[in-house]
């Protein structure tokens, strides 16, 4: 029994790793192409991130003289590994998450911190003043987006506690979409929470306008300034995987619908159709929360990042929470 479980975990982990790296890089390429088209450019080919990774792998890997060697080399590996672990908990299409269980939504919030923490550790270990500034900025960004993210998730879980069951598991949340449990006020509240989560997403994956920690022009790539070759390639892949995982989390929380719920399909066809539909939903989330925002905005200052998250987005998320609360008292049907 234990041996079987272990075997399944190992096989599935390898599968998830290959899946995460390929689709993470693919979506990164699509994102770059889309942003280029939005800016009236031709843009790089969609396979560009793969070429970047192959090129970085073939470059020399330098460890600076005043870096803390083991930490400096370990950070990219932890960053990539924890990004991949995220996908073991998030339901993909019709497939059940491999490591799901009671309380995994809380765990996922914490695992989302680990890639950022690994980058902070790597930044401090690389012994460059630019990297130190970047690491401090990354920590401040982390503290800023964490509160609105927690408010959004707590609001959803609290609303679902009306039906009872294993509410703190992602599997339960994605099998009970929030839209089916709410009235009119709750619907508005849900949309507001979705908006807050969409704005948290670029902060979580360090994209414009919240990429202050990796600002190329101000602090020379910040955290990544000393990284080169293989280590940089690992960070590059980790960034792509994290982007994919965050978009999957948004899909699991707000759009967990499957094609096979609406159309009658054979078992195998249903799995494939649901998987493709899932990729499409992830694409939509990335289009609206990352690509569109990236094409249309400039980078914020670190003070603006903090005030946007702590004041504006937190207030918006709390307002959504209050609407969900009112929804329990005055239930107005919207359908």
């Amino acid at each position: 029994m234990l041996g079987e479980l272990l075997f399944k975990t190992v096989i599935a982990s390898i599968g998830i790793t290959i899946f995460a790296v390929i689709f993470g890089l693919l979506f990164k390429g699509i994102d770059r192409k889309l942003v280029a088209r939005m800016q009236m450019r031709v843009g790089p080919p969609i396979r560009q991130p793969f070429l970047d990774v192959i090129k970085l792998m073939s470059k020399e890997t330098i460890v600076p003289e005043n870096a803390v060697g083991w930490m400096y080399n370990l950070a990219p590996i932890i960053c990539l590994a924890s990004s991949i672990i995220l996908l073991l908990y998030i339901p993909i299409g019709n497939f059940e998450p491999l490591l799901g269980g009671h309380g995994d939504i809380i765990l996922v919030i914490y695992i989302f911190l680990i890639p950022a923490l690994a980058m902070v550790a790597g930044g401090f270990a690389s012994g460059s003043p630019f990297a130190t500034v970047g690491a401090q900025r990354e920590m401040i960004t982390m503290m800023s987006y964490e509160f609105p993210l927690a408010v959004v998730i707590i609001a959803i879980v609290w609303k679902l506690s009306n039906i009872g069951g294993d509410i703190f598991s992602l599997q339960f949340i994605s099998s009970h979409p929030i839209w089916e449990e709410v009235g009119l006020l709750g619907l508005i509240g849900g949309i507001i929470l979705l908006l807050a989560l969409v704005i948290v997403t670029p902060g979580e994956v360090a994209k414009i306008p919240f990429d202050v920690a990796e600002a190329e022009t101000e602090i020379a790539h910040g955290l990544l300034v000393e990284y080169s070759g293989r280590n940089l390639a690992l960070f590059y892949i980790a960034d792509a995987v994290k982007m994919f995982a965050m978009a999957s989390l948004v899909v699991a929380l707000f759009f967990p619908y499957n094609l096979s719920d609406f159309i009658k399909l054979d078992e195998i066809v249903a799995y494939i159709a649901d998987f493709l539909f899932f990729l499409f939903k992830v694409f939509l989330v990335m289009l609206f929360s990352i690509s569109l925002v990236r094409a249309g905005m400039a980078r914020l200052r670190i003070t603006q990042v903090v005030s946007v998250y702590w004041i504006t987005i937190t207030l918006i998320a709390l307002f959504g929470l209050v609407l969900l609360m009112w929804d329990n008292q005055y239930s107005i049907k919207w359908w």
């Binding site: 450019r41 560009q48 790539h221 000393e226 080169s228």
Partner: peptide, 21 residues
């Protein structure tokens, strides 16, 4: 700029010599 757009060849300006070719 969009007119010449070197990114279509995969050429990017980076901010650190450690990343550069």
């Amino acid at each position: 700029t969009p007119r010449y757009d070197v990114e279509r060849f995969g050429i990017r300006l980076v901010g650190s010599p450690r990343h550069a070719d």
